[in-house]
Design a protein around this nucleic acid. Structure first.
Length: 122
DNA sequence: ATGCTGACTATGT
DNA sequence: TACATAGCCAGCA
């Protein structure tokens, strides 16, 4: 590969690859995905990559949230953010009264064994 | 080539 | 906790 017309740039390709390895029932932040993709400080690019996602791309984009543990609002104004929250809840992700997720508890932690949060996890 | 925009983050007030 | 500002990079007109 690495030749001819590619639907997406290698940069986006890396981002999608990272998002794809996010385990179910876990959430990752844009900055985290960017870092794992080899793009530190490019959290914005991650968000933009999600928006530029080709139609038909099957990946857990709903498991990507911002550093505040909240679902970022996307352009279009639709209830896309709501759909994302519903999908996460369907995987067992818990939202607090403020509509935020405990990254310390549900956050995806690669390198860690079992991805199990410290204490009080469940 | 230039300038603006955008599913962000960190820091300060 | 909420709002404002600065820094980042890629895609598009």
């Amino acid at each position: 590969m690495a030749r001819g017309a590619r639907a997406v740039s290698d940069t986006y390709r890396r981002i999608y690859d990272v998002v794809r390895r996010i385990p179910r029932g876990r959430v990752a932040t844009y900055g985290q995905v960017a870092a794992l993709a080899g793009l530190p400080r490019q959290a914005r690019l991650v968000g933009y990559a999600m928006h530029a996602m080709p139609n038909g791309t099957a990946l857990p984009w709903h498991r990507v949230i911002n550093a505040q543990g909240r679902v970022s609002a996307r352009s279009g104004g639709s209830g896309g953010s709501v759909t994302q929250r519903v999908l996460l809840e369907g995987e067992g992700v818990r939202f607090d009264a403020a509509g935020r997720v405990s990254l310390a508890r549900q956050g995806w932690q690669p390198n860690k064994r079992g991805q199990r949060a410290p204490h009080a996890a469940r």
